[in-house]
Design a protein around this nucleic acid. Structure first.
Lengths: 94, 94
DNA sequence: TTTATATATAGAAATATATCTATATGAAAA
DNA sequence: TTTTCATATAGATATATTTCTATATATAAA
């Protein structure tokens, strides 16, 4: 599977507490936007904005299911990115 | 060695290209502020600001040497933080 | 001591980000 | 079809971040 990696984009995607929580939630289960909204105290457009950002960074996957859009964390990609991060800043890997 | 870890603060510290470059440079060698400034095209106060941010995040160490302040990456801490990040978002660790 | 050098801090300006309300879009149900 | 529901987009606002210039501080050299 071909993957791209932009280390700054990856870290920016994780540099907000709401996005980190979303990503963590979506590790466990696929959820619709409304379900995610229900778990936070910010508006639906704000959640959609965070989801779009995570999607652009390649950290979540999404699919349409009727009226809903279901999101889930791309845990393989997240793992891949964490590996790249370690490789960049801990090359010796003590 | 006791360490603290704030996953959002860690990612924020890495969410800027200049700071990532600084951190990478300081993996290899200890450098004074002026030496770091010389490697970039931004002002000395801007570099000092980034260094302070990295320092507050615990990612660099510093010591005084005469008139100069020498900075270096705390590679143990960076490695520790990367580990925490993986643990948070890739708990299964496939 | 005065002067020069290295770094930090203060304050302002420009840019980016997070958030909101209002509305558009698109799909399913009535 | 029309209505309803789920999500996205547009546009505005508030806040945070990055950057600058000017200046303070602290150390070493003259």
């Amino acid at each position: 599977m071909k993957r791209t990696f932009d280390c700054v984009e990856f870290c920016k995607a994780l540099s907000d507490p709401t996005r980190q929580q979303i990503l963590e939630m979506l590790l466990e289960k696929e959820m619709s936007v409304n379900e995610i909204v229900a778990a936070f105290s910010v508006s639906q457009p704000t959640i959609s904005h965070h989801l779009e950002l995570l999607y652009q960074a390649g950290l979540v996957l999404r699919r349409k299911d009727g009226k809903q859009i279901l999101y889930r964390t791309d845990d393989q990609q997240v793992y891949f990115c964490c590996g790249k991060l370690i490789a960049k800043f801990s090359p010796a890997d003590k």
